[in-house]
């Protein structure tokens, strides 16, 4: 499995973990508020918090992944050749990280899939509201559909890389 596939798997796992944490926090907690505006405000704050958490988690996990990947390459080089050269490891990583035209095409294709899914989620949320659904669920449907769209984007990317 190549560097990019491993990186995509890491992104997917992070996305799933953040979404699961959001669902647990959002649906698991009971709110003592009665005013609709206050409930919506509370929900909006929760969503903003989790957007921040998601961004920070993604950055931290990508950095950790990069460090662990470098260590794994160093160990593999040590076992194979008997010595571990820093410049050699840097060169190997630079060759793996290079983004070419195929990566850009795969990115565009997977982004399209993600956006379509998020768009369907957004329209579904509006339909939900038209059918006298709760505004809190509208927010949840939008947030979850965007998160699932991002996860689906990762799976699409994996599919195109493995094809």
């Amino acid at each position: 499995m190549a560097y990019k596939e491993k990186k995509t798997i890491t992104t997917i796992v992070t996305g799933i973990a953040v979404l699961a944490a959001y669902c647990y926090y959002s649906f698991g907690s009971t709110i003592a508020l009665t005013d609709t505006d206050a409930i919506l405000q509370h929900q909006a704050i929760t969503m903003l918090k989790f957007i921040g958490i998601g961004i920070v988690a993604m950055i931290v996990i990508q950095i950790l992944f990069h460090i662990l990947y470098s260590i794994s390459l160093a160990i593999a080089s040590q076992i194979k050749t008997g010595n571990c050269n820093d410049k050699e490891i840097e060169k190997m990583i630079a060759l793996e990280v290079v983004e070419d035209e195929r990566d850009k095409i795969i990115e565009l294709k997977s982004l399209r899939v993600g956006f379509v899914f998020a768009g369907i989620g957004f329209v579904s949320a509006l339909v939900w509201l038209v059918m006298d659904g709760s505004a809190i669920y509208l927010l949840n449907i939008i947030f979850i559909s965007f998160s699932l769209g991002s996860i689906l984007e990762g799976f699409t990317r994996l599919y195109y890389y493995s094809r």
Partner: peptide
């Protein structure tokens, strides 16, 4: 070959296997 052409090895593998058609430049 990947180093000479500035792409990843995976792209060369995909082109060689006929799974990906490169751009005219590549």
């Amino acid at each position: 070959l990947a180093e000479k052409t500035g792409v990843s090895r995976q792209t060369i593998i995909a082109i060689e296997a006929g799974k990906y058609s490169p751009s005219l430049e590549l």
